[in-house]
Design a protein around this nucleic acid. Structure first.
Length: 432
RNA sequence: UCCGCCAUAGCUCAGUCGGUAGAGCAGGUGGCUGUUAACCACCGGGUCGGGGGUUCGAGUCCCUCUGGCGGAGCCA
């Protein structure tokens, strides 16, 4: 058998005899011709099989082979203007690795999302799902490359935690040798400790929320990158967020154009993303919303509708900062200019995608933080280690969390977050 | 937890005024030498989500349960 190659490398083998290994994605037949669409993970190529070349028996076997069977196919690579990828394979021989059953559940015609999600393990084979997950992988790689190049150290945060990090969301509880443990909802507090050791750090891992959210923006298990920087204030935090998002968008545009095309993303919307991002104080955002006719009052957090109104007004992500402290977490530092406000920032992605990043400058004063814990009715004992960070050389510091799935949804232009993760966990879905 | 919508063939759906359960795709058989979700002919395929009610008669109307979807709240 000739040498094994991948569809992605096919252009380097024009005129040569090669072997491809993959799955039968589709077949069209025309009498003594078979058009076999063979998918190998790097692409799909049409393999043209002529009866008079391969012989009756192999030809009939290929004609009867169920879709999604695994196979190896050998032939000569030739250019053909009719091919979507510019090349096809003139088959000389083929062999079945393992035939698929005749009842492959996913059809060529469209199906409902719930049905497809029940067969997520097979749905991943589709071109569109592969494109989305390839963009996801590229986004993650871009985030890590960018942070690594900016002097950040990757520090892994624990997933099992003894208590609520923020004391707000509902947590998944699990038994821990007779004690209660919870699945993490944020690695941030641990990153603050690490920032006092390494200066600039980030964690990347899964996050869990037991909220009974049934919306297009929520998962019960999602992935978050959480950078934390010592000696950085809110303005510095916003500049780092901005640079990160610019780097991510540029990377995807540079390396994943094909995939964006598959998901039919209007890339001009992504090309319009550039520094400086618009910045808006919470106070201004309230005014903008009121002028737009929204019924919001100062002091409330924004809902999905408000985020949509604000984000649609800009081409680049919008940084909304200095929220009322009462709607924000206990660890956020008060604005010295206006103690009603927290030095917090939310980043709203354009086109109505809404919040993809949340960040803040952290409270670095021991006494103020102690009072905040009390006001939020949090158990002080569980936070003693966290208070130590303010006892031993406290410094101005800031950080943020970026939601991977929401970022993927925005960059791919998807209406729902559930296709941005290989195996989504929703309130109503724990399998496959 | 609350509000709204949906549930009919393996899949996507239609089903009028309450009157014998339909189509396309998928599957099977045959045909076709350039197909692009190929096409053509023929064939098999139903607990109309469960339960109850109204009616001579319910896929259709009413009640209820279950499941799903979308949104609110909460958040990335």
């Amino acid at each position: 058998m000739s040498s094994w190659t991948y569809v992605s490398a096919i252009r380097e083998h024009v005129g040569q005899e090669v072997t491809l290994k993959g799955w039968l994605a589709n077949r069209r037949s025309s009498g003594k011709l078979h058009f076999l669409q063979v998918r190998d993970g790097t692409g799909t190529i049409q393999c043209v099989m002529e009866k008079k070349i391969v012989g009756d028996e192999p030809f009939d076997a290929a004609g009867a082979l169920p879709l999604e069977s695994s196979l190896a196919v050998s032939g000569t690579v030739r250019e053909d203007p009719r091919s979507p990828i510019g090349f096809e394979l003139a088959v000389t021989a083929f062999s079945v690795v393992a035939p698929a059953g005749l009842d492959y559940p996913i059809q060529k015609k469209e199906a409902g999302t719930d049905f497809l999600m029940d067969h997520r393990h097979l749905w991943l084979r589709s071109r569109r799902q592969q494109a989305i997950l390839a963009v996801r992988a590229e986004i993650i790689r871009a985030i890590r490359d960018h942070l690594d190049s900016q002097g950040f150290t990757l520090i892994d945060a624990p997933i099992l935690t003894p208590a609520a990090c923020e004391g707000t969301s509902t947590l998944f509880e699990t038994d821990y040798f007779g004690d209660k443990a919870y699945l993490t909802q944020s690695g941030q507090l641990y990153m603050e400790a690490a920032a006092m050791a390494f200066g600039r750090v980030y964690c990347f891992g899964p996050t869990f929320r037991a909220e009974k959210s049934k919306t297009r923006r929520h998962l019960t298990e999602f992935w978050m990158v959480e950078p934390e920087m010592a000696f950085v204030d809110l303005d510095g935090d916003m500049a780092i967020i901005e640079d990160l998002l610019v780097a991510v968008v540029a990377r995807v545009l540079d390396r994943r154009r094909e995939e964006l095309k598959v998901v039919e993303r209007d890339v001009s919307k992504l090309e319009a993303v550039r520094k400086p991002f618009p910045r808006m104080r919470y106070d201004e955002a309230i005014e903008v919303l009121k002028r737009a006719g929204a019924s919001v009052e100062w002091g409330a957090d924004f809902g999905g509708d408000e985020e949509t109104i604000l984000s649609r007004q800009h081409d680049s992500p919008l940084l909304v900062h200095r929220y009322p402290a009462d709607v924000k977490a206990f660890y956020m530092k008060r604005d010295p200019q206006d103690p009603r406000l927290a030095l917090a920032v939310d980043v709203l992605a354009p086109e109505g995608y809404g919040e993809i990043v949340g960040g803040s400058q952290r409270e670095d004063d021991l006494a103020v933080l102690e009072a905040s814990l009390e006001r939020h009715k949090l158990p002080r004992e569980a936070f003693e280690w966290y208070l130590d960070l303010r006892r031993y050389g406290t410094v101005t510091h800031s950080g943020f969390g970026i939601g991977i799935e929401r970022t993927v949804a925005w960059i791919c232009g998807l209406p729902h977050i559930r296709e941005t993760i290989p195996f989504p966990r929703l309130m109503s879905r724990l399998s496959p």
